[in-house]
């Protein structure tokens, strides 16, 4: 199982734990992640404006690299995944954007969405299989009540992201169950944490995260997992330590190898 891997800026700096645990777990599971050579920041937000070409180019470059290598492109950070997956769809469906991107990048063959973009969790679910993971778990998270926090970017808009049911996702819970944990269902798991607004409007982030944390806690969660560094930051910043927020890959690595602080 060979993939190009796009870590993104945050995983190289503030979210090193996300990157490191993902790579370690992948190795355990026989998944080979080759880092995209000379990748650039994806821009962190998908440019919804249809006339915004330049902001799409770095995603296109990563997608092109994977096309040339003939392998799927795997992402992990929710923001990177969102941007790259949606830009990929634009290139496949919007001939105008496709041609403009080709002009900017000087491509003789325009990039038309040929690369398969996969989130790390999709690789685990569909290519490795949660059942296989379950069999490889050496340190099950038995009895741990964990709430899965999806946030927005992995799920919506569902017609493009095609990650999971946008209102009732279960992929993280299914993985947690494979790791031996007891996932806790709560209704705010797909509601926004306020995202980048935490920078300019901390009060908004505080309101949103409180709603999420309260909902999870009331349902019995003793910890949360997420795949997004910004969600992780916003949630842990406002939880006051009462509800630890882990990267899902940290729990995965711990269950597979043991030794992590949580397990």
């Amino acid at each position: 199982m060979n993939y190009y891997y796009y870590p993104g800026c945050t995983l190289k700096t503030k979210a090193k734990a996300l990157d490191a645990s993902a790579r370690a777990a992948a190795e355990c599971l026989g998944v080979t992640l080759t880092e995209v050579p000379e990748w650039q920041c994806c821009g962190a937000v998908y440019p919804m404006a249809q006339d915004e070409v330049a902001a799409r180019l770095s995603a296109v470059r990563a997608l092109l690299a994977a096309r040339e290598a003939g392998v799927p492109l795997v992402t992990l950070c929710s923001a990177c995944h969102h941007v790259i997956k949606r830009v990929n769809a634009d290139m496949a469906k919007n001939p105008d954007l496709r041609q403009k991107a080709a002009n900017y990048l000087g491509l003789s063959t325009p990039y038309a969405g040929e690369t398969k973009v996969l989130h790390y969790l999709e690789v685990l679910k569909n290519d490795v299989g949660f059942e296989t993971i379950k069999q490889q778990v050496k340190h099950p998270l038995t009895g741990q009540k964990i709430g899965a926090y999806y946030g927005c970017l992995l799920l919506r808009p569902a017609d493009v992201m095609q990650f999971d049911d946008p209102e009732s996702p279960t992929m993280l819970e299914d993985l947690l169950r494979a790791l031996g944990a007891a996932p806790v269902d709560y209704d705010q798991k797909n509601e926004c944490c306020a995202g980048y607004l935490s920078l300019t409007d901390p009060a908004a982030a505080s309101r949103r995260t409180r709603a999420i944390l309260t909902s999870a806690r009331e349902a019995g969660a003793e910890a949360l997992v997420t795949a997004c560094p910004l969600c992780q930051y916003n949630l842990s910043r406002h939880s006051g330590g009462s509800l630890p927020v882990y990267y899902v890959t940290e729990l995965l690595e711990a269950a597979l190898k043991g030794g992590n602080g949580h397990a």
Partner: peptide, 26 residues
Amino acid sequence: RLPAQLIPELIDAGTPQQAVVSAFRK
């Protein structure tokens, strides 16, 4: 809306790049 010189006051030790980059883009 977000001059670069404002950034240092808005971040703390844990602020992920993702937050800064998105805020800039937005």
